[in-house]
Design a protein around this nucleic acid. Structure first.
Lengths: 200, 200
DNA sequence: ATTAATAGACCGACCGGTCGGTTTGTTTTT
DNA sequence: AAAAACAAACCGACCGGTCGGTCTATTAAT
């Protein structure tokens, strides 16, 4: 174990533990002391790797955002057409629901913090808008390919699709015992896509 | 000041101030001391009217839940058919969006706390399920009236409709500068209802 | 090969301050 | 006078963050 990997290990442990704790108890209710305890690391080590608690949170958020972004892009590239790609993305929600047993999905904790902390908001609004235009662009492509009705507003539709996904995730976080969230998500997306399809 | 002697006024002031503060900064970040300061009331008065901070939160939540519940019921009774009633409810979202300038919608703060505090969860899950079966019953009625396709799953559809509303509210809380959230909500609900309608 | 020097990783006691909640006593209403 | 309503000082626990110093692995000098 070189000097470098020692530090990297500690940092990753802190990242993993804090992700789990933020998910379980939320940002405010998670103390740095508790993170250190579970990561079996001293407070000094913590502040050696992260300037502040908020900075750690930001690191988690941008990392998660990048993962999701990459996963979306991969879905579109591996699908034959846009409607299928969107269904594909909805299908990936299964992993989100599986991780839900641990508590409030971390996405929503990001969301909540972004509403209260201007600095976090600033780092979150840009990726959010990227997601929006990602879907809007996809829908635009779908329209040109004849898969969607040409009278469709891509931006508006993108927000609706994101709403279905997030709204169901929100409900699933609250009522995780219900087992069919994944099916409901697929049904919901199909319902929306159905109305978006060309009527001709 | 006759019927409502001092006590009731004080209690209402605390209720109003705390609602505003919870909305602006969230539950954890709002201290009892700050509530008392803005309500121009001492801590003694606070704890005279509420056993605990959590209890105050619970009072706000159940009150809000009852208001919404009543508003939904009124919408159904004043509408000619179920699809129109649902559009009507969606139309009421305007007031939610208007109140959004103040911060994170209190609904979502309720939601979040319910995920971390078992006692709050217990008090929130029952109303949530009432909302679900409210919509499910409404859809069932709509099916029997011939407004919706008979192959529709009422429970699943109810969750999807709630998802659209909540998902858009979530986005609107994050990006309040966008002005068309209300229109997008109407469009989204219509999109879903359109797919639910009888194809015959 | 041994030693000295260096730098990043890490420790844990400690700081000022805030938290939710309690206690004690005073004012107001009935 | 009794009870309800309120004020304000106070409590212990805990918060995020700091700081002086130690440990350990690598590099440079001998």
């Amino acid at each position: 174990m070189t000097i470098n990997s020692r530090g990297v290990d500690t940092k990753n442990t802190i990242l993993n533990v804090s992700l789990s704790l933020f998910t379980q108890n939320g940002y405010d209710a998670t103390s740095v002391a508790e993170i250190c305890r579970q990561a079996q690391v001293s407070k000094g080590a913590f502040y050696h790797h992260f300037p502040s608690k908020q900075d750690l949170f930001l690191a988690l958020m941008t990392s998660w955002l990048n993962e999701v972004s990459e996963s979306f892009r991969a879905s579109v590239e591996s699908s034959q057409n846009i409607p299928l790609a969107i269904e594909n993305i909805a299908d990936q929600s299964r992993s989100l629901y599986d991780a839900l047993q641990d508590g409030f999905p971390i996405l929503l904790e990001f969301w909540r913090q972004a509403n209260n902390d201007p600095e976090i908001w600033q780092q979150a609004i840009a990726p959010y808008r990227r997601f929006l235009s990602f879907f809007a662009d996809a829908i635009q492509t779908g329209i040109q390919a004849g898969d969607f009705d040409e009278s469709l507003d891509p931006d508006c539709s993108a927000r609706i699709i994101m709403a279905v996904a997030m709204g169901l995730l929100l409900q699933a976080s609250f009522d995780p015992e219900y087992e069919k969230w994944h099916q409901v998500t697929q049904a919901g997306i199909k319902l929306v896509l159905n109305s978006m399809r060309t009527t001709k």
